[in-house]
Design a binder for these strands. Sequence first.
DNA 1: CCTTTGTCCTGACTGC
DNA 2: TGCAGTCAGGACAAAG
Length: 268
Amino acid sequence: MPELPEVEITRRGLLSLVDQQISAVTVRNASLRWPIPADLDVVLHHQHFLDLSRRAKYILAQCENGILLMHLGMSGRLMLLPEFVPPAKHDHLDIVFNSGQVLRLRDPRRFGAVLWHEDTQHPLLTCLGVEPLEDAFNGDYLYRHMRNRSAPIKTVIMDGHLVVGVGNIYASESLFRAGIAPRTAANKVSRVRCERLAQEIKTTLSAAIEAGGSSLRDFFGADGNPGYFQQEYFVYGRTGEPCKVCATRIKTLKQGQRSTFYCPNCQL
DNA sequence: CCTTTGTCCTGACTGC
DNA sequence: TGCAGTCAGGACAAAG
């Protein structure tokens, strides 16, 4: 389940590809969330990765003639291999560089995406909300944009048109840290509590990036997982277990067909 | 059958 | 009444 921290960690792990030239592209299975463009090999031929950036959960590789968008979906993983090795079952795409390195996409559930766009602004990126770790996202921004939202706060902070990158795990975790009940109507959350929530979202995401960053080498090895996965959550996936703060049993509920975890005592 | 994910889409509804 | 914004629910992909 790559959330924003893992996407950012992945991007950082690929930075050595900047300025490298593509020598070959192999698409083994194009049917991801959207089809991988049939002419991707032609389009990318001899181009360089001029820059690697991230917007929301998209990894963006700027090339001479356009931009390559990569999304890991739910089970996607980008591996940087020092040289070609035979692909495993769900290895759908290889991008080979002149150095011999191979950027390989593995995605068993195929909810990910690899797209090409010639302009700088891909349609998928134009309607996105602010980045949670940038200054534009703060308590004031949250408060202002929640005035006319009667939906539950959990649903609203996961709305990518408002702020990007707050997935199901971090929504629950941030609300716990901010002491806010997930079903609270967004427009009933005070300015002070918005301030707190914005801060907790930043803190939680940043901490996860740092935790994952320290195991970057493992992440890109043959079988390593990022330290991020080993990080312990306060509430996520802990239904029935005692709250780490007050020992009350953690509860679950469904919001928009998604599981929400919370402590009924700490979150009001 | 259930569950997991982010994103898009539709139709219904709300408030100005 | 019109219209934009919002909301709930479903669809979708695959696999455990």
